Amino acid sequence: MKLANLNPTAAPPDTKVASQTPAAAGSGKLRFFARGLVPYAYLSPTVILISVLMIVPIAMVVSYSFKDNVIVEENPVLVGLANYTKVLTDPDFLVALKNTFVFITVSTVAHLVLGLTFALMLNTSLLGGVTKAVFRIIYILPWLFTVAVIAVIWRLLLDPSGVVNYLLTTVGRMQQGVDWLSDPGTALWALTFVNIWAGFPFFMISILAGLQGISSDLYEAASVDGAGAVRQFLNVTIPQLRPVLVSMAVLDLIWTSQQFALIWMTTGGGPLNATEMLSTYTYKQAFSSYEFATASASAVIVLLLSLVLAFFYVRLQKER
């Protein structure tokens, strides 16, 4: 019988040393730290791009809004909230704010109503496949045109000698042609109509996708319970479409409030500020009056209003 090794300090011949040298421990921590930086390395190009194109310009505009004679003067003076006071008390800004409210409210409501109406028409089983395809092409045409093309088309159509006046005078609705975009009483409504015409196809396609995602079992269950077409629309279609409708409404409020190209190429904010919007007011302050500090203050106000709408949009998305 062999005696066991009774020396407590002797290690078994096949046992590995558990302890590590300080250099090995340091290299392990370095590898762990480098592995943690890999996700940030992938995100860094996007973060740099957003910082250069968004965060830095926004910060510069905000700083300009607290100074006077920016850009045109070498040493601008810090004036605090004076630019904001000047903008908020400017009658032209108040007119632009009112016109923007009317413009975005009417446009958003009309977009939703028209989009839902045409989407229901294209989703019905009463029309054949070929007929639906033809109507889809016709309805989506306004969305295919660029803003410049839309502005040129409608300026020609709404001209006193244009097609719209010709049709209205032919059917006896008018005695003589009206310059819709040059009359202060009709310019805002004509511009709003053009914006509605150009934007409703996007809502139609979005709502149509939502309609096609509603299960037919819900309509069958409602029909078994004795619900007619109207009750099915109110109790099945609208509740199922509510997330889509609310999201599209908030997005349209944001997009329409920032509309500039269509307004500038049709009326330029005129006549007599009848179609002046926050976007055109800000542009004129900067590049017509060269009041870049005032324009910056106006831009910050528009940004804050847009952030309020964006907050509600994000909150709705989280609730969904």
Rank of each mutant, 00 (worst) to 15 (best):
L3S: 13
L6T: 14
P12W: 09
T15W: 00
G26I: 08
G26D: 09
R31P: 01
F32V: 13
F32T: 13
I50D: 03
V52C: 11
S63R: 04
S63E: 10
F66P: 07
E73M: 08
G80F: 00
L81N: 02
A82S: 11
N83F: 01
Y84A: 08
V87F: 01
T105P: 08
F118T: 13
S125Y: 06
G129K: 14
T131F: 06
T131N: 08
A133C: 08
R136S: 14
R136E: 14
A148S: 14
V152M: 14
I153D: 04
L157K: 09
D159T: 05
L168F: 08
Q176K: 05
G177Q: 02
G177W: 00
W180M: 13
A187N: 05
L218Q: 15
S223K: 13
V224D: 08
A229K: 13
R231H: 13
V236D: 03
P243Q: 02
A249L: 09
L253E: 04
T256H: 03
Q258N: 13
Q259N: 15
T267F: 00
T280G: 12
A286I: 01
E291F: 04
A293R: 01
T294K: 04
A295R: 05
S296H: 04
L307T: 03
Y313R: 15
K318L: 07
